[in-house]
């Protein structure tokens, strides 16, 4: 089994990952946690203690909105992306791509040395 990513590496990208999950369909906390685990091939496991504050922060920022449902007999809080959240996802994705390309370029000599 491949090693999971370290928390330092993940910190800056969790927002983006959660936004991308919500762009395909609304979700509630536990559901998003599981979906992220599956989507990442078990490599990304976000802690509940990290996920809920993150969701609340995105709600306060207006990137997601919530609604409550009672169908399970318990109150369940569902999150969905707002228009601002969609814009955020697009801009963050672009930024992330540029970042990855940049890091890749910087690391090229290291990679060559390792392979060579």
């Amino acid at each position: 089994m491949t090693e999971r990513f370290g928390p330092d590496l993940l910190r800056g990208s969790l927002d983006l990952l959660v936004l991308s999950l919500l762009s395909s369909s609304p979700g509630y906390g536990y559901d998003l946690q599981q979906r992220l685990r599956e989507a990442s091939g078990e490599l990304v496991q976000i802690q509940a203690g990290t996920l809920y504050p993150l969701l609340h922060r995105m709600e306060a920022d207006g990137f997601v909105r919530c609604r409550w449902e009672q169908s399970t007999g318990r109150r369940r809080k569902w999150y969905e992306l707002t228009a601002a959240g969609k814009r955020r996802l697009v801009s963050q994705t672009r930024e992330w791509d540029r970042y990855v390309a940049c890091i890749r370029a910087v690391l090229d000599p290291v990679r060559t040395a390792l392979e060579g």
């Binding site: 509940a48 203690g49 809920y52 504050p53 609340h56 709600e59 920022d61």
Partner: peptide, 20 residues
């Protein structure tokens, strides 16, 4: 236990609202 220490989580969950 996976949710972690209640005080730390409470602090984190209070923060967005306070910022707002």
């Amino acid at each position: 236990s996976e949710l972690g220490d209640a005080a730390g989580l409470a602090r984190e969950l209070s923060r967005p609202r306070a910022a707002l």
